[in-house]
Design a protein around this nucleic acid. Structure first.
Length: 428
RNA sequence: GGAGAGGUGGCAGAGUGGUCGAAUGCGCUCGACUUGAAAUCGAGUGUACCGCAAGGUACCGAGGGUUCGAAUCCCUCCCUCUCCGCCA
C-alpha cells in the first residue's frame, strides 16, 4: 500500500511513476482523503465538547449538584445533541475511510527509479549470464517430461486421476531428487545466515492482503470455502506476516529467513497446451528467501539476495541469466525485481532461458499493509521496514532444468555433484 | 464435536459506570551513589491520526447498543487456554 500522505504531497511524481505500470487515478483518492480529514476534524471537535460535558456532569454531581436539576439537564441535553450530530457524520466518515482503503489496496507499488521503463516482458533488461560452458550440446535433447516419464520418476497421467491436470506425482528417484533439492537449498541458505521457517501452509485473508495477493488477485489462489483460510501461493505470504503488527527493535534488523513450502496456484486462464510439464503446476515446491531490513539498506540487500539465489544455480552448474524486470512487468508489490532464468534446452526452437527465481525489493509497501515497523532506540516514533523476497529456487523448475541439462545419450540423467551426497547415487 | 475459563500497556496484574490511557510490580532508558559492578534512590518509558505549536482525538480482542459519560453494563462475532471425545 502506498502512503496517502506521500501521494498527497507529491501527487504529480506518484502519478507519473505509477503511470509506468498502468492507469490509476490518484487525484480522486487524494480528494477523498481531503474530505475525510475535514470530517475527522469536525468529529474530533464535537467529541472534544462531548468529553468536556461528560466530565463536567460527573464533577457537578460529585460536588452535590442535583442529577435531575436544570444545570445538569442542560448539559445532558447538549450532550444528546452532539451525539445526534455525530451519529449523522459517523456513517459518512466510515464510508470514506473504507472507500479510500479499498482504492489504496488495489494500487500497485511504484517502480524504483532504477527500474527500466517498459511495457511488458519484452522490454526486460538482461543484466548478466553465467555458465555458457555448461549449456549441453547435441540435437537429440529430450524435453524433461519425456526424460522423466521414460525413467518412470514422474507421472502426469495418474495425477489427473488423483487430482486433475497440472499436477504431478513424483516416484522413486524423482521424489528423492525433489527432497534432495529442498534439503540442499535450505542447507545453503542456512549456511549463508538465513534462519529457517516452516510456516502454516493454510493462511488467512489478512496475510494475503499484507503481501499483496488480496484483494486484487483472489482468483489466483485456492480458497477453503468454509474457513477464512487459503492455500499458500508462495512462502512469501506467511513469512511476510510473521512480524505483522509488530514493532521490531532496529538492532533486530536485518532479519533473514528461508522457508520451504509447497505453493498452490490456480493459474486461472492458463489452461491449454503443455500440461505435461513441470513449469506451470497447481502445486509445486519452492524454497524461498526473505529479508526484513532497514530502509537505507534494501537496495544493497536486493543485490546480495539475488546473488544468494544465483549461488544455488552455480552450485548445480545450471546455466542461467539475470534479467531486470521493466516497469510494466513488475509484480504488484515490487519496486525492483531481478528474475533468474535457467537454460532449458527443450524450450523454444532450440533452447531458451526460463524463469526459475524472482528476487524483489518491495520497499515499505508490504510493511505498510502489515504494519511491520521498527524503532530506533532514542529516536521518536517508528519506521516501516523494507521487505524483500526471492525464490531460492523453485524446485519443480530446477528439477526440469536438471533433467534436461544433465541428460545423457543413453537416457539416464547425471546427478549434479552437490546433490550426490543427498541422493547417495550419481545417476538417475 | 461437547463443557468450562478468559482476552487490559514489553511482560505480570489491578480496575466492574464518572477528572482512567488506565494503579502496582517487573522490565527497559537516563541520572545519582560506587574504583567498577551489584544493591539502592530519582526521573522517564504505548501506538496512531490532526495541528507550526499549545493541544486535541482514537485505541483496554473486533463490531454494535445503553448513557451526559463505558475498560467497566447489554448484544453479536473472533481468538486463546483447560478438560472430555475423536484423531496423525
Amino acid at each position: 500500500m502506498l502512503d496517502i500522505r506521500q501521494i498527497r504531497d507529491n501527487l504529480e511524481d506518484f502519478q507519473t511513476r505509477l503511470g509506468l505500470r498502468g492507469d490509476y487515478d490518484l487525484g480522486a483518492i487524494v480528494a477523498l482523503h481531503q474530505q475525510q480529514r475535514d470530517l475527522d476534524t469536525q468529529c474530533a471537535d464535537l467529541q472534544t465538547r462531548s468529553n468536556r460535558i461528560g466530565k463536567d456532569v460527573g464533577m457537578k454531581i460529585k460536588n452535590g449538584a442535583d442529577p435531575k436539576g436544570d444545570e445538569v439537564k442542560a448539559l445532558r441535553d447538549e450532550g444528546n445533541q452532539i451525539k445526534a450530530q455525530l451519529a449523522d457524520l459517523e456513517p459518512q466518515r466510515k464510508e470514506l475511510e473504507a472507500q479510500i482503503e479499498t482504492l489504496l489496496l488495489a494500487i500497485p507499488n511504484v517502480p524504483d527509479p532504477a527500474t527500466p521503463i517498459g511495457k511488458d516482458d519484452s522490454e526486460n533488461v538482461e543484466v548478466r549470464r553465467w555458465g555458457d560452458e555448461h549449456i549441453p550440446q547435441g540435437t537429440d535433447l529430450k524435453p524433461h517430461w519425456e526424460v522423466g516419464e521414460t525413467l518412470g520418476i514422474l507421472n502426469f497421467e495418474r495425477s489427473v486421476k488423483i487430482a486433475q491436470s497440472r499436477f504431478v506425482t513424483l516416484i522413486g528417484a524423482g521424489a528423492a531428487l525433489e527432497r534432495a533439492l529442498i534439503q540442499f537449498m535450505l542447507d545453503q541458505h542456512i549456511e549463508a545466515g538465513f534462519i529457517e521457517v516452516l510456516p502454516p501452509f493454510l493462511i488467512n485473508s489478512q496475510s494475503l492482503t499484507t503481501s499483496g495477493q488480496l484483494p486484487k488477485f483472489a482468483e489466483e489462489s485456492f480458497q477453503c470455502k468454509n474457513d477464512d483460510l487459503w492455500l499458500t501461493p508462495t512462502a512469501e505470504v506467511p513469512v511476510t506476516s510473521l512480524y505483522r503488527d509488530e514493532i521490531l527493535a532496529a538492532d533486530d534488523l536485518p532479519i533473514y529467513h528461508c522457508a520451504y513450502t509447497p505453493c498452490f496456484r490456480r493459474e486461472a486462464g492458463s489452461y491449454g497446451r503443455y500440461t505435461r510439464v513441470l513449469i506451470r503446476l497447481h502445486q509445486f515446491n519452492k524454497v524461498e528467501m526473505f529479508k526484513f531490513v532497514h530502509p537505507d539498506t534494501s537496495d544493497a540487500e536486493l543485490e546480495s539476495l539475488t546473488q544468494q539465489a544465483e549461488s544455488i544455480l552455480q552450485a548445480l552448474k545450471l546455466p542461467y541469466r539475470v534479467v531486470q524486470l521493466c516497469s510494466g512487468d513488475l509484480g504488484f508489490s515490487a519496486i525492483k525485481t531481478y528474475d533468474l532464468e535457467v537454460w532449458l534446452p527443450s524450450a523454444g526452437e532450440s533452447g531458451m532461458y526460463r524463469e526459475i527465481s524472482s528476487c524483489s525489493n518491495c520497499g515499505d509497501f508490504q510493511a505498510r499493509r502489515g504494519k511491520i515497523r521498527f524503532k530506533e532506540s532514542g529516536k521518536k516514533g517508528t519506521q516501516l521496514v523494507h521487505t524483500l523476497n526471492g525464490s531460492g529456487l523453485a524446485i519443480g523448475r530446477t528439477m526440469a532444468a536438471i533433467l534436461e541439462n544433465y541428460q545423457q545419450p543413453d537416457g539416464t540423467v547425471k546427478i549434479p555433484e552437490v546433490l550426490q551426497p543427498y541422493m547417495r547415487r550419481d545417476v538417475l
